[in-house]
Nucleic acid binder design. Sequence first.
DNA 1: CGTTAATTTGACCAAATGGTCAGGAATTAG
DNA 2: CTAATTCCTGACCATTTGGTCAAATTAACG
Lengths: 212, 212
Amino acid sequence: MNPRAGQTKKRTRIQALNEAKILEAALDIFATFGFRGTTIDQIAQKAEMSKPNLLYYFRRKEDIYISVLERTLETWLTPLTELNPEGDPIEEIGKYTSLKLQMSENDPTASRLFANEILHGAPMIEHVLKGSLKSLVDEKAVVIQKWIDDGKLTDVDPYHLIFMIWASTQHYADFKIQMRAILGEEVDQPDYFEKAGKTISTIFFEGLKPRA
Amino acid sequence: MNPRAGQTKKRTRIQALNEAKILEAALDIFATFGFRGTTIDQIAQKAEMSKPNLLYYFRRKEDIYISVLERTLETWLTPLTELNPEGDPIEEIGKYTSLKLQMSENDPTASRLFANEILHGAPMIEHVLKGSLKSLVDEKAVVIQKWIDDGKLTDVDPYHLIFMIWASTQHYADFKIQMRAILGEEVDQPDYFEKAGKTISTIFFEGLKPRA
DNA sequence: CGTTAATTTGACCAAATGGTCAGGAATTAG
DNA sequence: CTAATTCCTGACCATTTGGTCAAATTAACG
């Protein structure tokens, strides 16, 4: 029986294996070439199977793309979840920023996949952005505002602060090619991201105006 | 004679007009759909001419794309050029940041065009990134380092500072759809970018740690 | 082992798309 | 006004690509 039909039947061993292979391959290709820039053949080749066989597991190209997006989204939202209202503001924001930067270092494809999707108008995940993402951000914005009201943080707009954290950290995944063009192979050294983290946190916490 | 041939002949009136129409239309389409996601038909339709006629002015799709990129690049590099070594550091960086943010507001397509190109590996403009962009950034990094050595700025890595300015400001063009999903139509109000600018400059200059 | 269900594939199709071309229409130069 | 040149178009082509299908192969199960 065709695995795409009713999901009442349990997944077989081969099915689980091949679906995993496909999604892994697809993440890489989609992140590099975008949805339209990716061909099913490319994914099939990278997943080491024939195109018809791949289409046996995912009936349409779009199905693969959506699966990859959904799978990655979860990982993507987790760090913000962990922003702890009870913790020390500076420490919490520091942890969050550093976690996001780590993700740009270790899993840049995920970041690029989203950047692509959003640049193209987020046709597939608009509902997620307006749903779980919005809820989560709204919730954390309240937390940050409370910290500000308590005088523990400089007065800034919580939403724009979150955007700025995303921007600064994801930039290291999405625009790495530009950075490499400017700085050369240094960007591939292990201490590059360390330096990035230091700069980002210094600016976020201390600011550019020298403190007395 | 075909306008694509030797450029010795001067451009005719119609030629100039139609080339402009094509490039304007192409910027929009390329910025939204990327190179591979864009079809010649789309551009032709937006430019209000037939596909063969469009191809009369630009022999290949790639030619249009490169023209659009080159044309936009110039505008793109200008603001950094104006960072004045003699000026006050805080003021200069403030002006630069605010200029970049304004560009994200008034001409988001340009930003998205580059984001797309870089995300996809910058196949067409790698030489520019490694050439004029790198030179310019190297030059300005020296200026910033001098300011730091003079004790006029907190000690941060100049390159990463520049990256962070790019990230924070361009984010408002490239990820506007995400922002709209979270904040709603507010992002299209005139005071939205004002608030963004305020947040960005507060963080850059003051930092999140409250000053005594 | 034998039967049933799951998996894989080569061959194939239709639509989309980048690009060509011969010739007709409009414009410009003299 | 006329000839040369530029501009424009419909028809067309080759390739790419998403997707189908019948049939062969392999794995699972009793």
